[in-house]
Design a protein around this nucleic acid. Structure first.
Lengths: 169, 169
DNA sequence: ATGCACGTTCAAAGTGTATTGAACATACAA
DNA sequence: TTGTATGTTCAATACACTTTGAACGTGCAT
């Protein structure tokens, strides 16, 4: 039987709350912040049941949450001998975590935009001169799309640049 | 009477749709992307009624949308003589827009975190030794909070650094 | 083999946020 | 002053996204 989860200190409860708000407002869901904060302030590794009890979340949330956090290397699984539950502890290298999250969110979107712009360019050529819109309008649109592609390629260069990688380190 | 809005070219419709998805996924709402894209591809300035017709959004959305976009300098109001409606056109300097949005979203949150961390530190000191938790646990928590503050101050330095400002330019 | 303890899944419920639209404000024209 | 054309506001609604929990999968112990 699991010993009753010790009551968390007020500071920690407070922080868990704020971390949850933060991750929520960044669009990655409230429980991720809560779980990470809980583990971050736990001197010992914790299992899924501990998280459920401490945070008042469901089994499913705990399970999905740690998996997502693992993918970002925000938490790691550790073995506790004599217990076959899964235990986790927080990775305290915050820079790495932020970097991984950004790569996964921003980076993915930049790449998505790449293929999108390619398609648009193709559409534009494919459509031919059969449109009802005057040539002038069409020229304007082409100019803007080109402008967009220039910006996008510059953005990608910056994103992949060594400088940014260093900054995120 | 407003002349019937000319049917938008397929490429433009497509782009408006994607821009809406993009801004939605970035957590700033779908209409912002739609309005901006519409103006970005409009050879002439457009008024709120045009936007409603072209995008199928409500009067309120158009009004609130352009106001938000104005705050980020993504669009500007222009005067069309002989017409007292408000007309808008897109600012095509995308770098500036991205920078303004980031300043408004990320920057604001970093500053919020500052005061939060101060409070936590104060709480920790204020609580005194009257807690039930063992000294060892308490020491652990203090260490982690300090770690957090170090990371936060580093993050702020990076965010405010000239390098980042240049990159966003 | 069976029971048990744990983790995972995903359709359904819940929650927070974006969007609507009717009521209101404003400004100009007649 | 009244009427008309426009922009703004915000409570109500619609929507997308998060979270739940019951059902299922898995592997170990007996």
């Amino acid at each position: 039987m699991t010993p009753a989860a010790p009551e968390l200190p007020a500071v920690v409860r407070r922080f868990i709350e704020d971390a949850g708000n933060a991750t929520q407002s960044f669009g990655i869901g409230r429980v991720l912040g809560q779980i990470y904060a809980y583990l971050y302030f736990s001197p010992e590794p914790r299992n899924l049941a501990d998280m459920q009890a401490a945070l008042g979340i469901s089994k499913g949330s705990a399970s999905m949450g740690v998996r997502q956090l693992e993918q970002w290397n925000a938490v790691r699984q550790v073995w506790v001998r004599g217990d076959r539950k899964d235990y986790y502890e927080a990775n305290d290298w915050l820079g790495e975590i932020v970097r991984n999250i950004l790569r996964d969110t921003v980076g993915k979107k930049l790449n998505g935009a790449t293929s999108l712009l390619e398609e648009l360019k193709a559409d534009l050529n494919g459509a031919g001169p059969a449109t009802t819109s005057p040539d002038r309008d069409r020229a304007f649109i082409e100019t803007r799309i080109q402008h967009l592609r220039d910006f996008h390629s510059k953005a990608q260069k910056v994103w992949n640049s060594r400088i940014v990688r260093m900054l995120l380190k």
